[in-house]
Amino acid sequence: MLRLEGIGKRFGGLTALQGIGFTVAKGSITGIIGPNGAGKTTLFNIATGIYPPSEGKVLFEETDISQFPPERRAQLGVVRTFQNIELFGKMTVLENVMVGLHTQSSSGLFACSLRMPWQMKEERRIREKAKEWLEFAGITDLADVEAGTLPFGKGRLLEIARAMALEPKLLLMDEPAAGLNSRETAELAELIKRIRDHGVTVALVEHDMDLVMDICDALVVLNLGTMLAEGTPREIQENQAVITAYLGEE
């Protein structure tokens, strides 16, 4: 589904990533792990088009999308969530999800300002669909709350609901469990599995090893901007290089 080939990224003189290459298989939940500063978020930013790679290619369903802007990748079905949650804070929870349905609708400037009949119909469909996604994430009761006032855990659920509204093929989640308590993390694990069962391939960056080992089918380990290992959770757990990187020498 998503293939990275020889990805490298430099910021000024600093090399953040080098020679990263792996594949996220269709229908899988792939975890990207590694110590702090390994370059995981940088890799996500490259995969979703926040900035282009300095070298290498990002292929999605065999199309080279390396130079595509984020909105074009979203239209193709590559969607992400953010580590620190990027909600539209001054809009309601429902409206946030309605923005998520942007690619699922098409009324432009003229149809919207002239309130054409088909635009009205589409608007009703967007609203209904958005409510369905709120239900999917279990936050229906928060529909009319201003998103900026949500507690962190609920904000995370909203961000997922909003991302799912795009009906993505691939959902990239940047540390989805960060800032969640253990009960919320358990709920999140269930939600991610439901997302996978919905036919969405999931790739996530995560620090919470219990969560990763629980839900991931495949793991990629980064260290200091390079690939350290890749394999099933069991293989990774037994990989000597990974253990050294995490626990230090000796």
Binding site: E71, E86, H102
Partner: peptide, 8 residues
């Protein structure tokens, strides 16, 4: 950034 990631 978030808007663009939402396909806007």
């Amino acid at each position: 950034v978030a808007a663009r990631v939402m396909g806007v």
